[in-house]
């Protein structure tokens, strides 16, 4: 039997504040910023690709237009998209995690009060 893969904790312990009064807007803002992050990552990668290939004298634009995806490529892209969704729904999943651990704003306030006590 192989050793189970070590999975670091993704959520920080402690009730996440709600910044907006509109329900769902906190989630939406996180999603939007994650999307902006991925867009930025992609731009960096395209930039890297172009810089690397240009060093080798390759015209990538032309080759990309004529590329056909095989099954392995389709699977790889699917996996990448699922991982993107997990990041995109980070806040929504944190809420479920807090509920699973019965964590609350009340407990957060209590910790502030307790830690301040001399």
């Amino acid at each position: 039997m192989s050793t189970p893969k070590l999975k670091p904790q993704r959520h920080s312990r402690g009730k996440r504040p709600q910044f907006y009064s509109t329900p769902g807007l906190d989630d939406a803002m996180s999603m939007i910023i994650v999307l902006a992050q991925e867009l930025s990552v992609l731009r960096d990668r395209v930039d890297a690709i172009e810089r690397v290939s240009a060093k080798r004298g390759i015209d990538l634009a032309k080759e990309i237009e004529s590329l056909e995806l095989d099954q392995a490529a389709l699977d790889a892209r699917e996996l990448q998209r699922q991982q993107l969704f997990e990041r995109l729904y980070y806040v929504t999943r944190k809420e479920a995690d807090e509920l699973a651990q019965a964590d609350s704003k009340q407990r957060y306030d209590q910790v502030i009060e307790e830690t301040a006590q001399a």
């Binding site: 904790q9 993704r10 920080s12 312990r13 402690g14 957060y108």
Partner: peptide, 11 residues
């Protein structure tokens, strides 16, 4: 341990 300080998962 009560809260993960500065939101670092795992503390």
């Amino acid at each position: 341990t009560a809260l993960d300080i500065h939101c670092m998962p795992g503390g």
